[in-house]
């Protein structure tokens, strides 16, 4: 499983990031380096979950605006700054779904479907891809977000836990249950 190098940082990088945050708390213009560092990551997270590109850019802007406005409340808890940004992004995403500005969408690549089918120990043929595609459409959103983060975005359980504000072990358990549900849905068609 690939590891997101932007997320897993050395202590030195985290300290550097913390110094940027401290400066930005005093002067919002110093937020620039953090924005540059995380804009792409947050945009991809948002865009992965919606269909419209422009709306995704708008939501991303909203995320950073909220982060800037609430930066004085930020407390360093030994995790990367991005986990805080992801939580804001998640909240903004759900707000945009509630406001009907966007629809909850899942974006998958064919190669990711093949990987999942192999994980189910089935043949990665077109029929199975279609079956898996249909099974994914039936999943509940809370299960889908775990599968999305684990299999499509290749996030570690530690990162998933920090984004969802749960422990690493809990993230593992929840992801395992989600994959079991997907397997069940996949086998019902079989």
């Amino acid at each position: 499983m690939a590891v997101n190098p932007m997320y897993h940082q050395t202590n030195q990088r985290m300290e550097e990031e913390l110094s940027w945050i401290r400066r930005a708390q005093k002067d919002p213009e110093c937020f620039g380096p953090l924005y540059k560092k995380y804009h792409e990551q947050i945009f991809r997270y948002v865009y992965q979950r919606m269909d419209d590109e422009e709306t995704a850019f708008d939501v991303t802007s909203q995320v950073f605006m909220k982060a800037l406005n609430n930066l004085n409340r930020y407390e360093f808890r030994g995790v990367p700054f991005s986990s805080w940004l992801y939580r804001i992004a998640k909240s903004e995403l759900y707000q945009s779904f509630r406001d009907k500005k966007a629809e909850r969408t899942v974006n998958i690549e064919s190669c990711q479907l093949s990987e999942m089918i192999e994980e189910f120990e089935e043949d990665s043929n077109e029929i199975n891809k279609k079956r898996l595609f249909e099974s994914l459409a039936k999943l509940k959103e809370k299960d889908m977000q775990l599968i999305e983060m684990r299999f499509f975005e290749k996030r570690s359980f530690k990162e998933i836990g920090e984004i969802l504000d749960i422990t690493e072990n809990n993230a593992k358990v929840k992801a395992f249950r989600a994959i079991e549900k997907l397997k069940e849905l996949f086998n019902v068609k079989n």
């Binding site: 919002p28 213009e29 937020f31 620039g32 924005y35 540059k36 804009h39 792409e40 945009f43 991809r44 865009y47 269909d51 590109e53 850019f57 802007s61 950073f64 605006m65 800037l68 759900y94 779904f97 629809e103 909850r104 969408t105 899942v106 974006n107 998958i108 690549e109 064919s110 479907l113 595609f133 994914l136 459409a137 999943l139 959103e141 889908m144």
Partner: peptide
């Protein structure tokens, strides 16, 4: 929340396309 749509093989955006949309001054 209901999943409304599943896209397969959507054309990904390049890094430059995303960077072009950075608007820190506006956010500030």
């Amino acid at each position: 929340m209901e999943i409304k749509k599943i896209n397969l093989d959507r054309k990904p955006l390049t890094v430059d396309q995303i960077k072009a949309k950075e608007n820190f001054s506006e956010i500030l």
